[in-house]
């Protein structure tokens, strides 16, 4: 079993498009194969998360590939602080059991934002 995600660009600005391709080789055909753009927090507090977009492939074969495209939202932006980081990723999943994800950066500068002096 393997699922792979290849991003065309590892950093984009809000309003630009996150594109790439997911490929999968599974032992059986999944009922559902999905790709989503999501963010999550990491840090001192419990993880928070949000989904910005999702593409579902119905009746997917056991092997296949799918191009994806999501418009990067304006917020939240990729951020690094001492108490919390905000991370964006594209996740591919088969029937919610098997998932992989690839991190990317969404910010106006295409770099993780930090507070100056932090």
């Amino acid at each position: 079993m393997s699922i792979q995600i290849v991003l065309d660009r590892a950093a984009v600005a809000p309003g630009e498009t996150v594109t790439g391709e997911a490929t999968w080789t599974l032992t059986t055909a999944p009922k559902q194969f999905g790709i989503r753009l999501f963010w999550h927090t990491s840090g001192k507090a419990s993880r928070d998360t949000g989904i910005a977009g999702e593409q579902i492939v119905m009746n997917a074969a056991a092997r296949g590939s799918q191009r994806f495209s999501f418009v990067a939202p304006s917020k939240p932006v990729s951020y690094d602080g001492p108490l919390v980081s905000i991370l964006w990723a594209v996740e591919a999943f088969a029937d919610a059991d098997d998932t992989v994800h690839e991190y990317l950066i969404i910010s106006p500068t295409r770099e993780r934002l930090t507070l100056s002096g932090a």
């Binding site: 990491s42 840090g43 507090a45 419990s46 993880r47 690094d80 001492p82 980081s85 991370l87 993780r112």
Partner: peptide
């Protein structure tokens, strides 16, 4: 400063 995502004691 260690960013939160690299802090070994982060919540997850």
């Amino acid at each position: 400063m260690t960013p939160a995502r690299l802090n070994p004691f982060r919540s997850e």
